[in-house]
């Protein structure tokens, strides 16, 4: 692996095959699931929706292919990919998945500042192993926040009005996010080894027994010198 690190600019030229492999591993099931959702619109005789989601799908695949080659990408590019991904996912769970993506603070969203697809495992896990079948609605709120010397990304995943008797299905193996956190920690370690960019991960559980809303907030803090 050949590295040339210019830390001021946060540009890292690497031959980072491993990152590309990780990305492929993360993404491959959603491809078939999305295509299968698009197929359903075709058989329902709804060419407008089928066409719309087919083009979202190709945009997302194009972004994944482009961004996989890069070490850092812009907030614009990441939130664009997230939006397309979540739109396709909400198609699979009609009406049961809502999401929002916001950017807070004065950030130039076109600067390459974050490693591509860093938070995807959390999002995927929230959908695959989260609250979709157990709650009225699953919310995923993603916030990009500009701090003094860092950028944080918060992923808040909650299920509303969850039947408490079913809650232990999720917490059966400790926390439902554990698997994705493992994957991410591995990635963070590699990013540190390659580029000396130290990303910090924080996790808070949401446990509102009054409203029966449950979930978690996972926060990524990425150093940034503006």
């Amino acid at each position: 692996m050949y590295l040339l690190v210019d830390r001021k600019k946060h540009y890292i030229y690497t031959n980072n095959i491993e990152q590309q492999l990780t990305l492929t591993r993360i993404n491959h099931h959603f491809i078939f699931n999305s295509l299968s959702a698009i197929q359903s619109y075709i058989f329902r005789n709804d060419p407008l929706q089928a066409g719309k989601y087919l083009s979202s799908f190709s945009k997302l695949i194009r972004l994944i292919l482009e961004n996989s080659k890069k070490d850092l990408i812009s907030i614009d590019s990441e939130s664009n990919a997230l939006k397309l991904f979540l739109e396709l996912q909400s198609l699979r769970y009609e009406g049961k998945l809502s999401f929002s993506i916001t950017v807070n603070g004065n950030i130039n969203t076109s600067l390459p500042v974050i490693p591509p697809f860093l938070i995807f495992p959390i999002i995927e896990n929230s959908i695959e192993h989260g609250f979709i079948q157990l709650s009225e609605n699953t919310l995923i709120n993603i916030r990009f926040i500009k701090n003094d010397r860092s950028i944080s990304i918060e992923v808040e995943n909650t299920g509303t009005n969850i039947d408490k008797s079913k809650l232990n299905q999720i917490y059966l193996n400790q926390n439902y996010q554990n698997h994705s956190i493992e994957v991410i920690n591995e990635r963070i370690k590699k990013i540190w080894e390659i580029s000396h960019l130290r990303i910090i991960l924080e996790q808070t559980d949401i446990n509102n027994t009054n409203t029966n809303n449950f979930g978690s907030i996972i926060k990524f803090i990425i150093p940034f010198n503006a």
Binding site: N33, S36, A37, S40, Y41, F43, R44, E94, Q133
Partner: peptide
């Protein structure tokens, strides 16, 4: 199947 659209597609195809 836990996804309604998959069930529908299979019914249509059958």
């Amino acid at each position: 199947d836990d996804e309604v659209h998959v069930r529908e597609t299979i019914i249509h195809m059958l």
